[in-house]
Design a protein around this nucleic acid. Structure first.
Length: 112
DNA sequence: CGACTGACTCTCT
DNA sequence: CAGAGAGCCAGTC
């Protein structure tokens, strides 16, 4: 069971700085389709030592998974902003910052 | 085994 | 785009 968490953490670690992904997408990439909620749990259990960029994981709509007023949401928004990701009204524009492995590699090839 | 819960998502309105 | 409802999955009691 712990193996699933490990895979989730590895997948999250693969998200490049300045980009964000959703719980569902992470679950798919980790080979665990339909376990979006498990991803959230895995992040909660993730040890600090791994330095998992949990703040780059949002809901499918681009909205943060916490109340805008909560300490966690504030911290997440701050971390994202520090990477150049614009967070407005507790949500991020996935059209701009959303991460997709294939697209990412494609863009990496084009010099932009 | 059944009932409840949650860092989720999809569909319809 | 926001809100409501239903579906899903793993954990816990």
């Amino acid at each position: 069971m712990n193996a699933n968490y490990q895979r989730i953490w590895n997948t999250v670690l693969a998200i490049p700085a300045g980009k964000v992904s959703s719980y569902g997408r992470i679950a798919d990439l980790a080979g665990l389709p339909g376990r979006a909620r498990l991803v959230g749990k895995a992040l909660g259990y993730a040890p600090d030592a791994l330095e998992v960029p949990w703040h780059r994981v949002l809901r499918s709509s681009g909205q943060l998974a916490f109340e805008a007023a909560s300490k966690t949401a504030i911290r997440q928004a701050r971390l994202l902003h520090a990477e150049g990701v614009v967070v407005r009204n507790n949500r991020v524009d996935l059209k701009i910052y959303g991460w997709s492995p294939d697209i990412s590699e494609m863009l990496f090839g084009l010099d932009y």
